[in-house]
Design a protein around this nucleic acid. Structure first.
Lengths: 203, 203
DNA sequence: AAAAATACTGATTATTTAGTAAGTAATCAG
DNA sequence: CTGATTACTTACTAAATAATCAGTATTTTT
């Protein structure tokens, strides 16, 4: 709608980026102000308390996810294509930038989050889990996926392993992300992707 | 060796607990001093800089893991028993207390960690991954485990999903931990554990 | 044109926090 | 007994940071 993104959106986007790279408690109004060439009080004008800002970030992440899903569903019709695109956009790209996903970045400091923020985070996370479960169910329906348990349980496992693969990538490099992703898909896909290294047990 | 744990060890243990419940940047020398009924300067006497303390926590976590492994291997001979005990001690119990594992708790703030600390964390995490890979390999050898990929890759997937199940438990309660654990084991165990709800796909 | 809302700046405050320095009491080694 | 070491306390400094408030310039509304 806006020609340039509104200042408020700029602040939220920058905050999210800082939270995902530096951690939830490792960014200040001063950091934001400096990056936007403003004074800290200008940030307080838009978000009087830091709690407001954190909450806005959690809410915005939910909207961002819905937007991403809309784009993915427009580009890919098959559950397999959608799942791959989801992994790429939400985890592979952030892994390359040394970022965490927002659910983990905020969730790590869950106990010191303002209630409104943790509630928003829960909603965002639930939206992701539900969408994933839908895609998994559809894929199993049409025999392109095969896995144990309910789509819901499987969605939880997928979200969980992808989330933690990001901090592990900071320890070991992107290679570990690729390996975890490969394992994950091998356990789900009916026809394992014909990549070089893969399934066959060595022993 | 000591009749009561040394003060230094007390500080490290308390720090680890705070990091795992409140987050890496959400605890101060004052918090520690108060809980130990000391003055903040007393903490500085043992750990002049916070970096020293964080590093000591990361190192201690590695030693703690080795100790845990020794106890597990003494109690359980089978890979399946060892894997279950590992999950219980390192993840199930912390999930009940609202704690994260130390790898994730420190890893979330990886980019603001002192180099010595991140190096120690890497070593600790590597020790866990290597032990897990060994157990998985042994289990596959004796036909109690069956899984795609190398033991190393599988260990990464297991560590990853268990790690992130802890912050998810803070969002949704312990139930999600149980479900993720169940999925994980179903993908590994040759004979799925004869629990009530489990494998058989509904569709 | 006047009034009101918007988006700031400058100046300042209070609090938290890591870190230091000087001193003290108790224990321990020679 | 004496000197050194250990484990602190009291008192302090400096920096970072969230938050407030009184302006100000610009735009928008009436």
């Amino acid at each position: 709608m806006n020609p340039s993104r509104s200042r408020k959106d700029e602040i939220v986007a920058l905050s999210e980026s800082l939270i995902r790279t530096q951690g939830c408690n490792a960014f200040s109004y001063y950091d934001l102000a400096e990056a936007l060439r403003l004074r800290p009080a200008a940030i307080h004008y838009h978000f009087p308390h830091k709690d407001d800002l954190l909450t806005a970030v959690a809410v915005s992440a939910g909207e961002g996810f819905k937007q991403t899903v809309a784009e993915i569903e427009q580009q890919y019709a098959s559950p397999a294509g959608q799942l791959r695109a989801f992994i790429r956009r939400m985890y592979q790209e952030p892994a390359g930038e040394g970022k965490l996903c927002i659910v983990l970045a905020l969730g790590s400091d869950f106990n010191s989050l303002p209630p409104a923020c943790s509630e928003a985070l829960r909603k965002t996370s639930t939206a992701i889990l539900e969408w994933l479960a839908t895609v998994l169910a559809a894929g199993r329906e049409q025999r392109s996926f095969s896995f144990n348990g309910t789509p819901r349980s499987r969605a939880q496992l997928v979200l969980s392993s992808l989330s933690a693969s990001l901090p592990l990538s900071r320890l070991y490099g992107k290679r570990i992300f690729t390996e975890i992703q490969q394992q994950l898909l091998n356990d789900i896909m009916v026809q394992p992707p014909a990549k070089s290294r893969a399934a066959s047990p060595k022993k």
